[in-house]
Design a protein around this nucleic acid. Structure first.
Length: 594
DNA sequence: GCCGTTTTCGGCCCGACTGTTTTCAGTCG
């Protein structure tokens, strides 16, 4: 039997991205490769299964810019798992050339020159060519370029990768504070993917106004934490920051290296610069096209041709006939037409969250006691705190036996009687065993207020096995919500193989919630699938998966994901009050007799 | 590679910075 290759949207996007890059390296016209790159972006953010749309011949309804060539590539990728064009390009391009592109200041033209003039195909060969002075002698290169390439090779091989949002946000906020405190700075904001709250970012962007741009820029490049200066001009500076990484439970720690850019503009330019540098690139293109259609030109300084003054971003959107688009929605995925039609959702906010369900205590693998967690939750302004310690089979995490579960219930009852202003809920993070059954029997499960069901073992199952396993758990009447649906750890471990579309459809049918695991190492569901879940009518719930008091605040990262998925407060379960939640959970129990 | 209310070819978003050049190409965002 022929096995159908599984090309999910991310794999298809990866293939198109690679085609675009390889075409550039082959010296093809930039607009041709851009066409493939645009398709990659659309595939990344497509909420439906692209392979299925290709099979049913309806993909062009979703990605209208597909022509004959790209449709053929898509068709081959879906039916064969590979594409003639991609294979051909790969065969003609040394793999080292892709790595060389990661060096700052090196683009496709320089890679080609290095290959044609010096025959360089790998990073070590490039390093050696630099060390022997051959690179500096090339036309268009020089001593400085050669030195930068050597630095770049060291940077690429040691770090220079994407950074988790929470880590970047921590540094970015500190940097922003310094900028705002600098004399003569009246406005300063974070921009770029940090402001849009992407789950991982490549650099930090700050836009500011200053009475003396030169002084601000000079100060910026000399602040503590700046390891090197990548560029310094009249209006912009670019530096490499180095700092101790945070050491959260799932973090590897170590040093963190990230680029930071500062742009200084005049007060009247500020809203345009902030908007431009917030992006995304795709969103900017949509705005520019709208400006063009009105006979204006939009750039990072002004809306040329438009006479009314814009003092903030909302004025720009208004001028373009749009409602204000929150940064998290600026991904070029239909926010322009929604804004034009006045159909943008009112996004959920962190202040809407009134409780959380998936948290651990010292009873399993948490760092803080039940009471300490309860007090910390109250301090955060939450009305309820659900405890979801691990279940018995997860011995590595000190999973609770039924006896210890009952003991915890007694402690919760006692604390609820004693503590004011916070209600503890009895939950469990119950393992989904390899066959899809649950780690506790139904009689015990019936005693909880709710059940979070999660996969922690046997990640190597086939996609079919894993999908069936999770769906079976969702069918279980006692399961309230699915924990971290894909098991991924950002920048560390890929998701296990699972058909999320099938999982989400099952959840929609059974009324089971899906968690947005807000631990910044996970953010699982991711925002794209979260948006699909919303389309399918799945109720979502934001959980910090806190293993300590401090980690309770992680729920804000989940709110960021929810906002990127266009979720309103009504579509997130834990915006309900404690009374509503208690009533709803009781109702769910009654409808599902054991 | 794709597109079309100046349509089937010419244009596609646009400016800053760098390093090399001596007026600009390449890179980046």
């Amino acid at each position: 039997m022929l096995v159908q290759p599984i090309m999910d949207n991310a794999s298809l996007a990866g293939a198109f991205e690679e085609i675009a890059t390889l075409k550039e390296l082959q010296g093809e016209d930039g607009f041709r490769s851009q066409a493939y790159r645009n398709t990659a972006r659309r595939l990344e953010t497509l909420t439906q299964d692209a392979a299925e749309l290709v099979r049913t011949g309806t993909i062009k309804d979703q990605i209208s810019s597909l022509g004959k060539s790209q449709l053929e590539v898509l068709g081959q990728l879906v039916s064969q798992g590979s594409s003639d064009l991609l294979n051909d390009l790969r065969a003609r391009t040394p793999p080292g050339h892709l790595q060389m592109l990661k060096i700052a200041g090196i683009g496709p033209k320089k890679v080609r020159a290095l290959f044609q003039e010096l025959g360089v195909t790998t990073l070590p060969e490039l390093a050696s060519a630099c060390e022997t002075g051959k690179v500096a002698a090339l036309k268009g290169f020089g001593a400085k370029t050669q030195a930068k390439i050597l630095e770049g090779i060291a940077f690429v091989t040691t770090s220079g990768q994407r950074v988790r949002l929470d880590q970047a946000l921590f540094l970015a906020t500190a940097l922003l504070t310094r900028v705002r405190e600098f004399p003569g700075v009246s406005r300063a904001e974070l921009a770029g993917s940090v402001r849009r709250r992407r789950e991982t970012v490549k650099d930090i962007d700050i836009v500011a106004t200053a009475e003396s741009p030169t002084e601000l820029i000079a100060a910026f490049v000399s602040w503590p934490g700046v390891r090197s200066i990548a560029g310094q001009g009249e209006t912009k500076a670019s530096v490499v920051l180095e700092a101790e990484s945070s050491t959260g439970r799932l973090s590897l720690g170590g040093r963190l290296t990230i680029n930071a850019d500062l742009r200084v503009v005049s007060p009247s330019q500020f809203p345009f610069a902030l908007n431009y540098f917030t992006g995304s690139k795709e969103h900017n293109v949509l705005l520019r096209q709208r400006a063009q259609a009105r006979g204006w030109r939009l750039n990072e300084y002004e809306l040329e041709g438009h006479t009314e003054i814009c003092t903030d971003e909302a004025d720009i959107y208004k001028a373009l006939g749009l409602a204000y688009v929150e940064p998290e929605m600026r991904e070029g995925t239909g926010e322009d037409s929604a804004a034009e039609a006045g159909k943008l959702p009112s996004l959920v906010k962190s202040s809407d969250i009134r409780g959380v369900f998936h948290n651990h205590t010292t009873a399993s693998d948490g760092a803080d006691t039940l009471e300490a967690m309860a007090l910390a939750a109250r301090e955060l302004g939450l009305e309820y705190l659900g405890i979801g310690d691990h279940s018995q089979s997860l011995t590595v995490a000190n999973g609770l036996t039924p006896d210890r579960v009952r003991q915890q219930w007694n402690e919760i009852d006692a604390l609820n009687a004693r503590l004011k202003g916070i209600t503890l809920l009895k939950g469990t993070e119950c393992d989904i065993l390899p066959d899809g059954s649950l780690d506790f029997d139904d009689a015990l499960l019936a005693g909880f207020d709710y059940v979070v069901a999660s996969v922690h073992t046997h990640f190597g199952q086939t996609r079919e096995e894993m999908t069936e396993r999770i769906c079976r758990a969702l069918e279980h009447p006692m399961v309230t919500m699915l924990g971290h649906a894909t098991g991924r750890l950002l920048l560390r471990r890929d998701a296990y193989a699972v058909d999320l579309e099938a999982v989400m459809k099952t959840a929609a049918r059974t009324g089971t919630m899906i968690e947005i695991n807000a631990n910044p190492m996970r953010l699982d569901l991711d925002w794209v699938h979260c948006r699909r879940a919303r389309e399918l009518g799945v109720l979502l719930v934001i959980n910090p998966d806190a293993h300590s008091r401090e980690e309770l605040a992680y729920f804000t990262h989940g709110v960021d994901v929810a906002r990127r998925a266009w979720l309103t407060a009504a579509e997130v379960y834990n915006t309900k009050s404690v009374q509503e939640v208690l009533a709803d959970l009781a109702l769910r129990r009654k409808q599902q007799p054991v």
